[in-house]
Design a binder for these strands. Structure first.
Lengths: 330, 330
DNA sequence: TTGAAAGCGCTAACAT
DNA sequence: ATGTTAGCGCTTTCAA
């Protein structure tokens, strides 16, 4: 930085101010400094900047699952938004218990990031508590998040409306969780589900809310459980594309006609749903990531003021394919 | 750190040494200091440490695709290995052209990381050149990487052997690329494919090497092209699970019998392959990520010495399911 | 609008 | 084996 300052004929302080867009530098000086810096291929050293300035320009993204389409897209959206705002993304994958335990024990974020984004992790009580104690804002996205879950309900709502519009009254929900173990907050989602059905004038049945892993196998197992009983739903909503595919395939294998006997909606609109022909709610994942980042950044900039409530997902829509139809006549 | 030093009755330098496992501290002192630090919930400030020490304890991971199973697993493996070695993971997603161009223009890594891991990105000439100019080691994993591609050939080999063992002689290869545009280095893989077939005593046909996107749709399109012509292979190897699924479904839809008329092997052994019943090579992805990290760390620690050659993938194996059989009698 | 000086919290020589 | 002394490369008062 000294070199740039000398080359530009100003002081280091001015270079710093100019390059960061701080006020108090004349337009001409700023232009000149910027140009010199560019020519010399100079970039501010983050470490030193953070050390001196106290801001780290980095956020931690905590996730259980890279490699799953929806969360991958959320992550991609978040990464893009963060990058665009000049923040680095520190990725923490806590997929297995060992890594997870290690993470929460060390909680290595304290002095490394300005904020934390939690994706697809169903936090347990004590984990949520640990995170809350951090001196930086934490924003959570996803199923069963204690903090909020602004988007799953939105998509769910779209799906329920669609099915109800077709005449369904017996709607099951397969919720894919990104982690095998979860806290008691699962009850919260139970409520969400019931409320949604209730507001549509339908009765909900606890046994029709099934949790599974966000995998093809998870979907298979879920419907196996669901269709084992006497009372069978006429429609099924799955929160993960993989689970939806599993459900779809399992049902077909077992001789069920889709959509004649059973309708399926995936809340995850991706390749798989498209290829297999599943009706799906599409387009929310990236936006979800982006919006979460905006919430987080807002809190970072206002020094952790309460997160402003933002509207529910833009751009999500239900795409009708072959897997939904009116319920069979009784 | 000063506080800890005072509380422990030693100097800051000793605390620093003790906490980092540096030699030159008596065992008892180290234990004491460690304990005091734990009690005080003290953790070294990375910024200051980096600034003073010159090491950043962070590596950049560059990828086009989070959300695809295989690369997601490679990423997870890499993240775990990095974390275990005390390195932070800076994630850069360059999925779309805009982000990609931006990244290579800024090349924001210069003074932020100790090394770069490139996953699933088919680098173009000038991009590879830019990366090579960085003052830190760069390790590349994946298809068509200029640097190396130690694992795809291994899996491919397993698949080819299996098919040859079944009597196949006409084997097509569907290679999924994680980016739509790629450099001329695609020719390299052409060669790998030909060599593999050649070493098995088979003739290769250039038109049976098909590139596609790593998606279900990509797989569908690839086989559509492949089965359009007169000369049709009796077996197909797909490098991505999604593409394999697409190929499988498309072929079935078009009335082909799998595996009677055509065998399919996926080089990507995941949920999908398992659920659909595709023969697949399994278990290499995480290890690939881990091994890449070890190569990278070795180069970081030896100050960029040439990467030691490591053996080909451990743990990869072909799992036979329903999608392969001897070729139809002529 | 700009510059000078004083750290930010560590690590690394160099002592001891 | 441990302590002392300089910085690392910035940002930020404070003064001009």
């Amino acid at each position: 930085m000294g070199d740039v300052a000398r080359a530009a004929g100003v002081s280091a302080a001015t270079v710093s101010r100019a390059l960061r867009g701080e006020p108090g530098v004349s337009a001409s000086t700023r232009a000149h400094v910027t140009e010199v810096a560019r020519r010399m291929r100079y970039a501010i050293a983050r470490d030193a900047s953070s050390l001196a300035g106290g801001r780290r320009y980095a956020v931690a993204v905590l996730t259980t699952d890279v490699g799953q389409r929806t969360w991958g897209d959320v992550l991609a959206g978040a990464e893009g938004a963060l990058r665009a705002s000049g923040y680095d993304v520190l990725l923490y994958v806590v997929g297995d218990e060992a890594a997870r335990a290690g993470f929460f024990e060390e909680l290595p974020l304290s002095r490394r990031v300005d904020g934390v984004l939690v994706l697809s992790v169903r936090l347990r009580e004590h984990e949520a508590a640990l995170l809350r104690e951090l001196p930086v804002p934490v924003v959570t996205v996803g199923e069963g998040a204690a903090d909020d879950s602004p988007d799953l309900p939105g998509s769910l709502d779209l799906a329920v409306r669609h099915l109800v519009g077709l005449g369904h009254r017996d709607i099951a929900l397969v919720l894919a969780d990104s982690t095998a173990a979860w806290s008691s907050s699962a009850e919260d989602l139970d409520e969400t589900y019931q409320e949604l059905l209730g507001s549509a004038g339908l009765a909900s049945r606890p046994e029709w809310l099934v949790w599974c892993s966000p995998t093809v196998v998870g979907g298979e197992e879920a419907v196996a459980a669901l269709f084992d009983g006497q009372d069978r739903p006429t429609a099924l909503i799955a929160s993960s594309g993989e689970a939806a595919l599993g459900a779809f395939m399992r049902l077909r294998r077992d001789g069920w006609a889709v959509p004649e006997q059973l309708s399926i909606v995936s809340l995850d609109g991706h390749d798989i749903a498209r290829a297999v022909g599943l009706t799906a709610v599409e387009g929310a994942a990236r936006e979800q990531g982006e919006r979460a980042v905006h919430r987080l950044l807002a809190r970072i900039q206002t020094q952790d003021a309460a997160a402003p409530e933002l509207p529910t997902p833009a751009g999500a829509a239900l795409v009708e394919r072959g897997s939904t139809a009116p319920p069979p006549a009784v």
